[in-house]
């Protein structure tokens, strides 16, 4: 069983959903983001999503755009991101790690080489926002050969036919984009999620995580209890950005602030348990 499948199944047995915090690699520098990554599991992260910085993140809102730019300025490369995961794995062999980004840096690196190197570094799954199933043949065979999950996004705009098509190409878990929009902007209501998640479940047996617009402990608890997990990204990156000094460097408040927020999110997610669908 993969680390992702095992983690979701263990949490289901505990009767709760997963908290999936996000960090942007090299934001604001390699050392700080690696320290944050290493401290996330103890703060309450059940799975971790790492953003691979890209110059043109066209599905992301201003907060993730700024984080990606800080990461690139600090020298992030795809090889560097994989190196971070490898360093993380020296101390943690249990927490699933998912990389999220855009297709061009991966195409540039080479699909086969990327899948092999990612798995060797300890990556469990990858989300490429702008690689729909129609174009994914370049990635699917090498990912399968390497044992890397391709996590698929589905959206409120996905029709029933589209859901079953997209999810026939999914592995690991399903990422439900809860709003038609970019990251870190609007938030879906509990009612929206209660209506949407069963539609997704009807098309897949994989666990479903909710992202885009999940900001507060209450929202995370709600999303993780209706679905199987909640991804929190922009809210954490915003906190991180707020602790940087005038030159954009990390301060002694950076790690504690972000970790404290993850702690609060985890507490709420754990207390909420699961709603039976």
């Amino acid at each position: 069983m993969s680390r992702i499948a095992k983690r979701f199944s263990d949490l289901a047995a505990q009767g709760r959903g997963a908290l999936i915090p996000y960090l942007e690699a090299y934001d604001p520098d390699r050392e700080t983001s690696l320290a944050l990554l290493r401290a996330m599991p103890a703060a309450g992260a059940d799975l971790i999503e790492i953003g691979m910085p890209f110059s043109d993140p066209s599905a992301d809102g201003p907060v993730i755009q700024a984080a990606a730019l800080r990461g690139l300025k600090a020298g992030a490369t795809l090889a560097g991101v994989l190196g971070m995961v490898q360093a993380f794995r020296e101390g943690d062999t249990q927490t699933p790690v998912i990389l999220m980004g855009y297709v061009n840096p991966v195409e540039s690196y080479g699909y086969e080489r990327f899948c092999a190197d990612a798995v060797a570094a300890g990556v469990d799954g990858v989300i490429l926002v702008d690689l729909p199933p129609e174009e994914a043949d370049v990635m699917e065979a090498p990912a399968q050969a390497a044992g890397l999950d391709i996590i698929r996004l589905v959206a409120p705009t996905s029709t029933v036919e589209r859901l079953s098509y997209v999810l026939s190409h999914a592995s690991g878990f399903v990422y439900y984009v809860s709003i038609a929009g970019i990251t870190g902007t609007r938030t879906a209501s509990a009612g929206d999620l209660r209506a949407a998640i069963p539609r997704v479940r009807a098309a897949t047996t994989l666990p479903v995580a909710v992202g885009f617009g999940v900001r507060t402990p209450e929202q995370a608890a709600q999303a993780a209890s209706i679905a199987d997990g909640a991804v929190v990204a922009s809210a954490l990156l915003q906190t991180l950005a707020g602790t940087l000094d005038e030159q954009g460097r990390a301060t002694d408040r950076t790690l504690p602030s972000v970790l404290e927020q993850i702690g609060a999110l985890a507490t709420a997610v754990r207390a909420a348990g699961r709603q039976t669908a």
């Binding site: 599905a59 729909p132 129609e134 174009e135 996004l153 705009t157 996905s158 029709t159 984009v177 038609a180």
Partner: peptide
Amino acid sequence: GRGHFGGRYGGRFVAETLMPL
């Protein structure tokens, strides 16, 4: 059918939210 010219260029590399559109 995939929107490619010469089997390689073009395509539909967009986020899932936009695919139906």
